[in-house]
């Protein structure tokens, strides 16, 4: 095994891992606000990619992507307002099944609108064969776009949650809903906002990754499972740990091709999910003491 090939796999792993991390952060934002695992999270990524490709036919690329992100955010808001907001003290089982139902509904709607075809945005710079060479390692410029935009997204989210009033209100609700409401924060609106935010980052991720992975009406579900694995691996609710966990899973998956046929790539991720759920459900970076107080 040459060193160049090793790096090549590493680059591929990091690229995929970044996207998994973004999906995981989407899971975490909604989980922190509501305690819900949104099984339709992957569908936001798919919708972003699909709407982006459709708008690209009419508009310049940056506008098309912005449009896709905004449209998906609206879908996120609509979902929360129509299906979640008015439920009174819903059980976990009920919420799980509702979000599963939503993911199927979105997927089938996408099938109806866009058909079974595989689509992709064009490469942001250059073409599919353009590559930057660093020594013997070839890197597609799109990989740099994925990493760059993801990094900006994570930094922006961090700023939003740490510095802005709205972000702090969301965090307050996540910490203690009743106390936040006593301070005049509308917990319900914060929940809607969490769906909007989560849909938005999912859609943006869907746009930047689509030139590499392509997008299809059913590409959401496998991403959701990977994203959930990463969220669990990092410890549910912990977005910074999700980034590390995402890179770890992406790299592991990428190198798994050495020992197993590529058809079993997804099996690796899911096996890791099961293993971590069995052994350490608080996640790799979670606090075992705090975990003891929680119900898994």
């Amino acid at each position: 095994m040459s060193l160049a090939l090793l790096f090549q796999y590493l680059v591929a792993g990091i690229t995929y891992g970044t996207i998994y991390a973004i999906v995981a952060i989407g899971f975490n934002i909604i989980y922190n606000a509501t305690g819900i695992i949104n099984f339709a999270q992957g569908e936001f990524v798919m919708l972003g990619g699909m709407i982006g490709v459709t708008l690209r036919a009419l508009l310049p690329m940056p506008v098309a992507i912005a449009g896709a992100v905004i449209a998906t955010m609206l879908v996120g808001a609509l979902i929360e307002m129509l299906f979640i907001r008015w439920l009174r003290r819903p059980s976990v089982l009920r919420l799980i099944i509702i979000t599963i139902g939503l993911s199927i509904a979105i997927r089938e709607l996408a099938l109806l609108l866009w058909g079974e075809g595989v689509r992709a945005l064009p490469y942001f710079t250059g073409t599919a064969v353009t590559s930057l060479s660093v020594g013997d390692v070839h890197i597609s410029p799109q990989v740099l776009w994925v990493l760059g935009i993801s990094a900006v997204m994570v930094a922006a989210l961090n700023f939003f949650f740490a510095r802005t009033l709205l972000g702090r209100q969301m965090r307050a609700c996540a910490c203690n809903r009743e106390a936040a409401q006593l301070c005049g924060i509308s917990a319900k609106n914060m929940v809607t906002l969490s769906f909007v935010l989560s849909a938005g980052i999912g859609a943006l991720a869907g746009c930047v990754i689509s030139p590499i992975t392509y997008v299809q009406y059913d590409s959401g579900s496998s991403l959701a499972l990977k994203g959930f694995t990463v969220a669990i691996l990092g410890g549910l609710g912990n977005s910074m740990a999700a980034v590390a966990a995402g890179l770890l899973l992406g790299t592991l998956e990428s190198f798994s091709i050495w020992v197993m046929p590529a058809a079993y790539k997804d099996v690796i991720a899911i096996s890791i999910l099961l293993l971590i759920l069995f052994v350490r459900p608080s996640g790799l970076f979670g606090n075992a003491e705090a975990a003891r107080l929680k119900d898994y």
């Binding site: 695992i37 997804d266 899911i270 459900p281």
Partner: peptide, 20 residues
């Protein structure tokens, strides 16, 4: 091992098994 989990975790673990 799976039935020790509850709620979301149980749902995701069984979903993971089915996917495997």
């Amino acid at each position: 091992p799976v039935l020790k989990l509850k709620g979301h975790y149980l749902a995701m673990a069984t979903l993971g098994f089915g996917t495997i």
